[in-house]
Amino acid sequence: MLLDELRIEPTAGEALERLRRAHRSSGTRFPPEDSPFGTLFVDLTHRCNMACRNCYIPVRELPDLPVEWLYGVLRRLPRRTRIRLAGAEPTVRRDLPEIIARVRALGHIPVLLTNGLKLGRRSYVAELKSAGLRTIHYSANGGLRDELYEAIDGMPCADRKREGLENAIAERMNVTVGMILVPGVNDFHLPEFLGWMLARGVRDIHFRSVGATGRHMEGKPFTLDDLEDRLREALPPRSPALRMTAEGGSSRDYRLGKVGIQLTQWPDLGSRERGRVTPEAMVEPMFESILSNEFHY
């Protein structure tokens, strides 16, 4: 029987040992003191309150990351870094407000990556803000429709998603809305959802293709050109001109008036901007790490 089934929490040392045994090195890694990354992902937990059909971390039986160990790693970073608190789903951790406060106290910038279900309570969003959170990356693959969430994320949760997003906006968080576009499934909904977001003042939007790693939906994913075509077709009438501001190997950045829109053909390999903290107290490129650890960590 698993420890989780017995409701017995492993000690910090036991948890780290289990995480280290599960983890596979990407082959490129740095000690924290030499980190080249401006952003680091931290997998606070492998637990989740959803079972999405697209998930690059589908492993669920591993223990939560010990936070005092994490703070020791963050103290060693050479510069102020954006720390993306991720999971599976980080809001399942009861100590998330304390983690946010400690990350801020250590001189770094906490950023929450969430499916948003728990943000349906505005008091919880306010608690996270009081702890020092200012930026949320919010997953909304089904936009405004239950049937799309059920098809992509395995749960009809449009109302809860919308409430969480509106609470984050109401608390004046810097919100980035992310949406995986699946050909023939949710791309038709893009005009409706984009118009809704623009009307509510969302200033940062990311659309990306399905990544063929971990648990994912089969089929040919959109290319960058496909994504740009869908975006241009979805623009509301009389909207500002869409202009590209940057282009990399797997992403394109645009401005639509005051709104930033990024398109990404997943994964974004070769980046020295985004890294990941590993259980060996090292940092390595984010997407290379994800590919190396498929169904392991």
Rank of each mutant, 00 (worst) to 15 (best):
R102N: 01
L165S: 00
R230V: 03
C48D: 05
I83S: 00
L16F: 12
P63H: 02
N54E: 15
R84Y: 10
G143E: 07
G219P: 01
L119F: 04
L19H: 06
K258N: 14
L40M: 06
L256I: 03
S239Y: 09
P237M: 02
T45H: 03
F30M: 01
S139R: 09
G164N: 01
F295W: 15
S139Q: 11
P156W: 06
R104K: 15
L291G: 11
I8S: 06
R172E: 15
T213C: 12
I99C: 09
G211I: 03
V259F: 02
A51D: 14
L198Y: 04
L133Y: 01
R93G: 10
F41P: 12
N174Q: 13
L256D: 06
N293Y: 04
R145E: 13
V182D: 13
P240V: 11
R29N: 10
T81C: 01
R203L: 15
L106S: 12
L190K: 13
L113D: 14
D64M: 01
P36C: 07
I180Q: 13
I261C: 12
W69H: 00
H296E: 12
S289G: 12
G120I: 05
R94S: 11
F295H: 14
G248V: 05
G184T: 08
R21P: 05
E68F: 00
P63W: 03
R29M: 13
P10G: 06
D34K: 15
S123M: 03
R208N: 12
L85P: 07
D146V: 03
E284N: 02
S35M: 04
A86R: 03
A22M: 10
G154H: 04
L19G: 04
G260Y: 07
D146N: 12
A246H: 08
V210Q: 03
V177P: 09
